[in-house]
Design a protein around this nucleic acid. Structure first.
Lengths: 211, 211, 211, 211
DNA sequence: CATGAATGAGAGTTCATTCAT
DNA sequence: GATGAATGAACTCTCATTCAT
């Protein structure tokens, strides 16, 4: 190995490492989508790669860890879009509508992430508790709480509200995927109308709205 | 050996068989709830029983099969209650309210069934496609369609509506379970208000409701 | 159960026992022929019967034991024919010819017994050491020794001679079965000519034939 | 790591692999000889080795596969000797004599290969249909056909002739093994005399031998 | 004596993980 | 850091056998 090669090695190494990590993540996404999380083995993931079995353990400790990383990776790609949407929104209604639209668009264009759930006899939808995902949910809840504080929506339990919104979003997304005649636009309009209508009909809780 | 004896003989055998089958189902429910479906092995289930390993295979062919049986078993217990509720309901509003209340009550009192989902890094909620479960969903959708046909609710896509209702129900149930300060009653009221409000706010599709 | 029935029970029992034993033997012969000895399980044999699994053990201790019984059964059917042939034979040549002809006829008409060997990745031919089978071989060797003592054939090692005769018989039978254009007659003529020719060409051993 | 090191690395790995494969084959040969093919389990083979259970499956998929490999291995060792013998033979008689002698010598010195059959309640002799073994038989038949074509032996069915020769060889070998007073030399002389005598006594089929 | 469910040893096999190269 | 064979615990499942009915 020449000195020149050695000089560049550091840079190349880093690059290779990043590539390998990404190769594993990509393979995992594909394999999870095909076999389902439970049925997938670390071997399956490595086989879908041109790396050696031992190499896997230089990057991840277990199947769980790749899965988590995959979740974070997905959340990392959605959150900026949702954040942009939130900033753009002038009213509460626009915020809700934008959030739903962004979510359904994402799901439509990133099939594998949700395909994973469909294929799966055991997964209904991806478990949602990696740091990144939780952070995304927290942002949503914070926004709902702000809306409540600002009096633009009735004073209800923000947790339950978030749960309802998330439930509608994921379940409708599921149907959208399995039925070709429902566009992201359709899904978003339906969910928005339902949810906003529901929110406005909710009874106030306790804290009276300040005049 | 008298004929009477024969009758009793068959009776005892049959009884033991029924007991064993139930013992396996019960053990499976507990173990799935504790370890999650994917992590559970057939051995785990047998270990939670006082039967021998081979005995499992006299009743079920695989882990999948017990799981399916468990699903059906659960659906079989909820459906009659929901059906009763539906019959009792005089108005569409009562139907929705009754359905949510029944569901949350059931979940509250039958923790394991849903606990199973919580613990699970892979399951969000139980996969919903055994015959019994699908039948339950179909009943719900049929009712929604009837309501639409009778003009008591806007003419929207019954599939999406069912999805939304199911999404709200399961996700809110999840939150109810993880938070001790939310009663089944609270959850039902919240879900009912949100959903009914949302439904009424939905835009008409084609057939205008008669004034 | 009436008194009359009881009276006849003893006789019937014996009959049933014999029937069951035979049913198991027949089933075993069929199953061995289909699956091969090694692959066959006791379960397979019972399944081919309309008896219950436990009943098997009232008649045989193991798969091996049925197999032995089957061997004996077969030997028991061939030996009388061979003995008759031996008695009828006026000369040594007729004895050999008759023996081969009888053997090949039997194999041709009792396919299963040999089909068992053919199908079998592990059996070349049936193991030949149940009492009945050994007895059959002993008879053959005794006859060969008598022939030697009587000077109608060269004085050679009767053991080796028997081995050669048996080897030719079984191996040629194998070919006869797998090729439809070879009749029992053909096989017998070939084997007889070869064996007799060979025997006459054998060098004398020690005991000079008395003039 | 230098290039030299690399070379050695590969060398060591390859060597270990070859050793392990051979270790498994050797163990299998011993265990088959002791317990018989049917009674032998994969675990038995591994136990006779200092390898771990999983390692077996890096080399063979099943017990059958080791057995086949063993067969081929044996055939691979005999065939060259038989071929050499055939080339050396100046006459048909020498060819037959040489073949028998080589075969009995081999069996005498490579006990295990045939011991396997003896011990076996199910195996009379090793099943003979791996590619290598069949090839060996085909060579023999081709030689017999050549001999017939050249008129050095009567024009008979080469298949049956081969069967007879094989039958004599294996059966006599069996007796040789179980009786200590029969040398390979004795067996070969006996078999050669018998077989050659027999062949010369066979009736002509169609093509009359030129005077 | 027939029955057939229960038993549990053990066979075959897979897999996450380690570690010499 | 990459490699891939070795490891052995653990899993699924089958089967001969027993024994209450």
């Amino acid at each position: 190995m020449s000195i020149e090669a050695d000089v560049k090695t550091r840079g190349k190494r880093e690059e290779t490492k990043a590539n390998n990590r990404q190769a594993i993540l990509d393979a995992a996404r594909r394999v999870f989508a095909e076999l389902g999380y439970g049925a997938t083995t670390v071997r399956d993931i490595i086989r879908a790669t041109d790396l050696a079995s031992g190499t896997f353990y230089n990057y991840f400790k277990s199947k769980e860890e790749v899965f988590q990383a995959l979740q974070d990776d997905t959340a990392l790609r959605v959150r900026p879009r949702l954040r942009a949407e939130r900033i753009r929104a002038a009213t509460f209604e626009e915020f809700i509508a934008g959030t739903f639209r962004t979510f359904f668009d994402f799901v439509k264009n990133d099939q594998t992430s949700l395909a994973t759930m469909r294929r799966n006899p055991e997964l209904q939808r991806m478990r949602i508790d990696t740091p990144e995902v939780i952070a995304g949910f927290e942002e949503l809840r914070a926004d709902l709480e702000t809306a409540i504080r600002n009096g633009v929506m009735p004073d209800t339990d923000a947790d339950l509200l978030m749960a309802a919104m998330v439930g509608v979003a994921f379940e409708v997304a599921n149907h959208m995927i399995s039925r070709s005649d429902v566009s992201a636009q359709d899904a978003a309009e339906f969910a928005t109308a339902l949810f906003l209508g529901g929110v406005h009909a909710l009874p106030k809780r306790k804290r009276p709205k300040a005049t």
